[in-house]
Computed example of a mutant assay.
Amino acid sequence: MRAHPIPPVTEPLQYRAIGLVRGTYAPTDPEQLTRGTLIDAQGVPLETVVLGRVLTLMRRHLPLDQPHLWVVYPRSRESDHLHLQIAGVWEPSTLAPDQADAADTLPEGDDFFSVRGELIFTKPETGEMVVKVRQQARADGHRPLPFKLQIKGELPLENLRHFVSLDLRRQGQELHLENHDVIAPMPTRGGKSKGGRGRATSRARS
């Protein structure tokens, strides 16, 4: 079992969207664990699906009437509505009991999210921004479509069309910016000029 559920970055422009939420998972149908609601310590319900590789682990090792620290992939279809995909659980006391020094807590704390992608929209005066995240190709070669995450926080307009690395904290149904790094301008397609990049930004925001 590795030392941290969020793996280190291996490439400067490595996309990702991953986080940690502690809560109790309640499936919509007790016979089908794939869809349900993750209820956090404050009682906030989060719409959730469970990825296939976690189902066996949940059935065999995790009492669902108790809270766990879930490793999740975030999605946001609306600014005030967070959707989660459970990809794992961080609970060394249950899954690696022979590791005496392994703790079920992490230095970043609960509700920490790491998001890396292209800043395609930012409105500092209202504290709103959108980051586009590209997904890795699957084993069959199919590459899923990119998705957009709505985030609360302020980044200046000059960071548009740049690759950014964001440390976020979930508050209810929202992801709020805590720290950020601007990594690099996004590469242009076909050697477009600076004006071409501006037009691309407009299309991405629509």
Rank of each mutant, 00 (worst) to 15 (best):
D29T: 09
L177I: 02
T188N: 03
Q99M: 11
P67Q: 12
R197D: 09
S114R: 15
E118F: 01
T34D: 15
T37H: 07
I18G: 03
S93L: 06
T126C: 00
K123C: 06
V115C: 08
P74G: 06
L166Y: 04
G198S: 09
P5S: 13
L157Q: 12
H81V: 06
P27H: 12
F113N: 07
Q173E: 14
L177R: 03
Q173D: 06
D110L: 02
A3C: 12
S165K: 14
M58Y: 03
L175Q: 07
P144S: 08
H180T: 07
P5I: 13
L166S: 02
Q66F: 08
M58R: 02
E125C: 01
V54N: 01
Q85Y: 08
P63R: 15
L13V: 03
T37S: 14
V54M: 10
T94H: 05
H83V: 07
R116Y: 02
L51H: 02
L64E: 10
Q136V: 04
G88Y: 03
Y25F: 15
L175T: 06
H81Y: 11
V133C: 04
L57S: 11
Q32K: 14
L119I: 00
A184K: 01
I86H: 02
T94P: 00
R77Y: 12
G195H: 09
E125V: 08
P8I: 05
F147M: 04
P27C: 11
Q136L: 10
P7M: 05
Q173Y: 05
Q14D: 12
R189P: 00
G127K: 03
G153F: 05
V44R: 09
E154L: 02
L51V: 00
M1N: 11
K152M: 06
